[in-house]
């Protein structure tokens, strides 16, 4: 029968020679490869003490932006949610009251804003869709966790620190 590929090599089944029977040359050849790797550059890094250099366009955990006066930028327009291919973003909007003008930039704001990080694929479509510069993907790698519940990120988990109130920022 004709072979499907030309890559198949026939196995040599002739009896082993003396050099092959004492195994030592093959053993030394193998050990030389092993010892050689000790002196090569390591493939691993000591994460989390060390991190790899990230690409400047790396997309990590989301942050919700505030303006210079600390008001939330997000106006719950829903464009991030409609752009999201994984349907990870959900929100509920509310109307700003007269005494809340220092909290929210527009007359409508996101009363609830959640990202299901189990669904998120970190594509950055939400960042691109946002007309208000409200959502950004930071350079923080998504932290691992043991419970599913901890992957539902709420608005307070993502908002950046207040520029005036939170001095540690």
């Amino acid at each position: 029968m004709e072979k499907l590929t030309k890559r198949a090599a026939p196995i040599d089944r002739s009896p082993m020679t003396l050099k092959e029977r004492i195994y030592l040359p093959a053993l030394l050849k193998g050990m030389s490869i092993t010892v050689g790797h000790i002196f090569k550059k390591k493939a691993t890094v000591q994460y989390p003490e060390e991190t790899r250099p990230f690409s400047p366009v790396f997309r990590g955990l989301h942050v919700l932006n505030r303006d210079a006066e600390g008001r939330e930028n997000c106006t719950a327009c829903g464009l991030c949610a409609v752009a999201c291919p994984a349907e990870a973003i959900t929100m509920e909007a509310a109307e700003r009251k007269a005494n809340e003008k220092h909290l929210y930039r527009e007359e409508k704001y996101a009363a609830r804003y959640e990202i299901n990080m189990l669904r998120c694929i970190f594509c950055g479509a939400c960042e691109e869709a946002c007309p208000k510069d409200a959502i950004y993907l930071s350079e923080t790698v998504m932290p691992a966790n043991f419970t599913r519940e901890s992957f539902i990120y709420k608005k307070q988990d993502m908002l950046i620190p207040h520029p005036k109130k939170d001095q540690k920022a």
Binding site: T90, E92, A93, E95, E100, A111, N116, E149, K154
Partner: peptide, 28 residues
């Protein structure tokens, strides 16, 4: 995991459509 146990959005016992005007902070 039932998403309604964790999520605050679209809670089964909160009916935004029954509020007369727009929702405000106290509705949440």
């Amino acid at each position: 995991m039932d998403i309604h146990d964790v999520s605050d959005v679209n809670k089964p016992n909160v009916h935004l459509n029954q509020i007369q005007g727009p929702a405000h902070s106290e509705d949440f």
